[in-house]
Amino acid sequence: MANFIRRLNEIPREELFASGHGLCAGCGIPPMVKIALKAVDGPKTVVNATGCLEVATTLYPNTAWRVPWVHNAFENAAATASGIEAALRALKRKRGWKDYKIIVFGGDGGTFDIGLQSLSGALERGHKFIYVCYDNEAYMNTGIQRSGATPIGAATTTSPAGRVIPGKPENKKNLLDIVLAHRVPYAATLNSAYPIDMWNKFAKASEYLDKGIGPIFFHYYSPCPVGWRMDSALSIEVARLAVQTRIWPLYEVEEGKIKINVMVRRPKPIEEYLKLQGRFRHLLKPENRHILEKIKEYVELNWNRLIRLSQLDSIY
């Protein structure tokens, strides 16, 4: 039975994701993983696409996991999860195995770009698992290369801000829209500054899986102090600002019905968000005003579209 919470002290103490891992100081990934493993109840197994989370938690001969965990290549986490789910279903039928829940973690490079086709296949076939894309907005583990998730204007090592380009020239793609095109039963965005909301979404996902309903997709905002060139102490603060500036709307979609979880009536200025991060600092210079204006336009367009869509009974 899923366990919804209203206060943080209702979260059990026992951690299934251990300390001693090699993720950077201030990394935004663990606060989500800790909650995911606890809020999704019962026996479970984790599938991890190559990326920071994968390499930094399994530095041989050590592991930071207290649940079964499987490594796979960069592009096929969803395919591996599909295979595990199908195998477990067969073992249940033939040998009376119990139910296991499958949670997949993939970075934005592994989900938006290289793993997109295996994800699409798995969503289309309707495998019963939870897929979480932790989005740190670049290929961080290999040295901050731009991805389809890198926002416009962000400086990365392959989109450096300078005289030629003002950071990445293209907009971030809307992954959740692509996922929703598969008509998944439940999808949502997550943010570490809103841990109760995040817990309850995982608890709901767990309940869906108990009823045999899936796949479920989460898009998690994952601050990366190293790649974003910011103070490690600011991880959660920047995550909160992302929501409060409407850059990262918190919403969920159940059977096509959109619900905005944090209604941002008076958004904070986007500059407040940008100025904390070295990857955006050049945007505050006068010669890059046009990019700043583009970002503001894009954020407003996205937000207004979301509001309009949330007024429909279903977008499916």
Binding site: L8, N9, I11, R13, E15, F17, A18, S19, G20, H21, L23, C24, A25, G26, C27, G28, I29, P30, P31, K34, I35, S192, P195, P225, D231, S232, A233, S235, I236
Partner: peptide, 29 residues
Amino acid sequence: WVSCPDNSIIRLDDDYVDVDYYHCKGCGI
């Protein structure tokens, strides 16, 4: 306690907190 990436905030029985300096990376979160 929920925000620490390294489980280095120890939640005591009465919900006050302490620090695990063996693992704390000093991120400041």
